[in-house]
Write a protein that binds this DNA or RNA. Structure first.
Lengths: 229, 229
DNA sequence: ACAATAGTGTCTGTTAGACACTATGCC
DNA sequence: GGCATAGTGTCTAACAGACACTATTGT
């Protein structure tokens, strides 16, 4: 009914996160088209929804990650939609934002058309569109989810030690954690599977764990509700 | 660049929630246009984004709530975006879903073009588009937020007793709560302001409270993160 | 006086933080 | 043996659930 006006255009932007050299980084790409705004700037990977190719926006996100960052379907979750008349100089637009986590071993290398950067370095300066807001909200979301879920498991390699896992949590949360409490909590969550293997970083070797097959996509988004009598 | 294809159309749908006769209801409207799909069915209030009128999608949501339900800017938060080729028979579409809470005294009455219904009654049968998913997710979101925040304050009138507030929490969560623990927790949260007034439902009068001015939009979305040493 | 609801005192089991302690490897 | 890291035992403070108790009204 409202088709007298031009429809806003619809894009997808992705906050791609991984651990590079032990620290949480986000992946950015350069804008290479001279006819588009912010030519030359580094931004979140994104692009238009292609109604012919994409069944939904998860498809869009995967296609973009694949073509612009060379990443194959990692953990992917919708962050929210950023839509307004002014966020894009070309006109009324809506961007459905996703965030994605990839383990270090599956992460593409920095290069001429893709770069890993520390979010804190990126956030101190402006970014094209409202990508700064998007990145900020993604980091906050990952932090808060990390504090009550097992989200960081998506950043881990096949085998890892509890100390390595704790270090990842510390990186994401930006603070130290008690080893005792951390181990207790994670083992009680019943998402890790002991292996016979050991891994060594220099001194006493540590037991290697892997993620239980059923564990991923399970404990996410669950809250403890105080129950009545 | 991708403008060879028709752009998906962009809509906003709203899950409007209120307490009607003490129970959590959602507001639905009938589809009255014979030329549109699902003519005659009851659905979530929604409509197209109007790029000329709306600065952003919060504007859209407020405009729709106002025109279709007669509700004036209540608590409004984005739930998520539902976008795919198949969700609307007219073609590729994206719906940015919001949920809204209004206090009972500001809630419109059920009538010919607006109806309050119990979510559990609505959810047992199919709905047009993917409105069933949207409603379901909204209810879940409100429940989970209620368990760790003060979201239900947006459902309360100016003055209320602790027992009334607890009853609202119980309605939303669908279970009983310990009065002792509930009172302690809410008073410690420091969001309520004592008044001198008393309210009475039949026996001993109870102290009336109001929401502290600063309290709304404060304790939302905060998590307790276990801190390190 | 008694019934019914409002509101408080307080016991207890559970849990998270803290930290000392043992275990296992390298040098 | 000494050192560094892995991993465990256990004490304690804080807190949530439970429930008995007091307080205030109507009938």
């Amino acid at each position: 009914m409202q088709h007298e006006y031009p429809t806003p255009f619809l894009t997808v932007d992705i906050v791609l996160l991984s651990l590079i050299e032990g620290r949480l980084h986000c992946g950015l790409i350069p804008r290479l088209n001279e006819n588009e705004p912010f030519f030359g700037a580094w931004t979140l990977p994104g692009g238009f929804v292609r109604p012919q190719e994409d069944e939904d926006t998860v498809d869009t996100a995967k296609r973009i990650l694949n073509s612009k960052a060379g990443v194959e379907s990692p953990y992917l979750e919708q962050l929210g939609t950023f839509a307004s008349r002014s966020r894009d100089p070309r006109g009324w637009s809506a961007s459905i934002a996703y965030y994605a986590l990839v383990p270090a071993h599956a992460a593409p290398r920095s290069g001429i058309d893709f770069k890993w950067l520390l979010p804190e370095d990126v956030l101190v300066r402006p970014m094209p569109f409202d990508h700064r807001d998007i990145l900020q909200q993604a980091i906050e979301r990952v932090r808060s989810k990390t504090s009550y879920s097992t989200l960081p498991l998506y950043l881990m390699p096949e085998l890892f030690t509890l100390t390595q896992l704790r270090t990842v949590y510390e990186q994401v949360l930006g603070g130290e954690l008690e080893p005792r409490g951390f181990n207790r909590r994670l083992l009680e969550m019943n998402v890790l599977e002991e292996t016979d293997q050991k891994m060594q970083d220099g001194f006493r070797p540590a037991r290697a764990y892997r993620v239980k097959a059923k564990a991923l996509h399970q404990a996410e988004g669950e809250f403890v509700v105080s129950k009545g009598s």
